[in-house]
């Protein structure tokens, strides 16, 4: 007689054995984690959520001074604050997703060592709470945008605006995918933790945040375009500011890249989560 068991624990499960049903069952936990992240971030601060604004504004001001005025890097005729701000907010979202998820195992080893829930909930909640932060900063961007419109700067809108959710998804996917890979490897090889910290910084310079792609030519341009983030950022700038590089093939490349990275990340994460408590 074959009995029916609700839970079977074995030494190893299939590589592709993702339990999405269980993930769905724990959806309430995801919202709790998001709430915790958002609520506790600025507890006992005077300015509270205003910090969400201050950080990108200050960064923008520094960029305007350093890259815009001292280095005189062109911005494709777009007002400098808008140009930098658009890059900063979308970049922030990527780096938030990446840095937060790349720390999943190390930061939560206490919880993970005491109670079981689908581990993937944790990085997913980071991506979701990052999204809330992104939207707040996005409104800031819209405010600056509208200000320039009333000042008579003309923007042309098109149907490409509909691409925005997709672009955000790509950013989230890339951040999550890389983060999952890094957090899994960090459980054994702590060295990678150091790589993440300055890696993100360096990666920003390989992405058209402080310069437009139109500035680059030849080999250099091809190399930068190997970076899937470059396509996403350029598309994002094109959609809002009308300047930038929106190409179908570029986005296709970024989409495939994202899909592969997310898939690989989940694979490695899935394999690591079962035993990481022993190795971390």
């Amino acid at each position: 007689m074959k009995e029916k068991w609700d839970l079977v624990i074995k030494p190893s499960k299939g590589l592709l054995n993702f339990n999405f049903k269980e993930l769905w069952r724990y959806r309430d936990l995801l919202t709790m984690f998001v709430k915790r992240d958002v609520v506790t971030l600025y507890k006992q601060t005077v300015l509270g959520p205003i910090w969400f604004f201050i950080q990108p504004i200050m960064t923008m001001v520094v960029y305007v001074v350093v890259f815009g005025n001292i280095a005189e890097i062109p911005t494709d005729g777009i007002p400098q604050p808008l140009f930098y701000l658009s890059g900063i907010i979308i970049w922030n979202y990527f780096s938030e997703c990446f840095i937060q998820t790349s720390d999943t195992f190390a930061q939560n080893q206490n919880i993970f060592g005491k109670v079981y829930f689908p581990r993937l909930i944790m990085p997913m909640s980071k991506v979701a709470s990052g999204l809330i932060k992104f939207f707040i900063q996005f409104f800031l961007f819209l405010g600056v945008f509208i200000y320039y419109m009333t000042q008579g700067v003309c923007f042309s809108f098109s149907l490409s605006l509909l691409l925005i959710p997709y672009l955000i998804m790509l950013m989230a996917g890339l951040g999550l995918g890389f983060g999952l890979i890094f957090t899994s490897m960090t459980t054994k090889y702590r060295d990678l933790k150091f790589l993440v910290q300055f890696g993100v910084q360096l990666l920003m310079y390989a992405t058209p945040i402080i310069y437009p792609m139109s500035m680059l030519e030849g080999r250099l341009k091809d190399v930068i375009y190997l970076n899937p983030l470059a396509h996403v950022v350029e598309s994002f700038k094109y959609v809002f500011l009308g300047q930038g590089d929106l190409s179908f093939y570029g986005l296709l490349y970024a989409s495939i890249f994202t899909a592969v990275i997310v898939f690989m990340g989940m694979l490695i994460f899935n394999k690591t989560e079962r035993n990481f408590v022993d190795t971390i």
């Binding site: 068991w5 624990i9 074995k10 030494p11 005491k114 109670v115």
Partner: peptide
Amino acid sequence: RITAPTTGSIKAK
């Protein structure tokens, strides 16, 4: 399910 066994299995209802 904090960590996985090396060999053997656990079944629960």
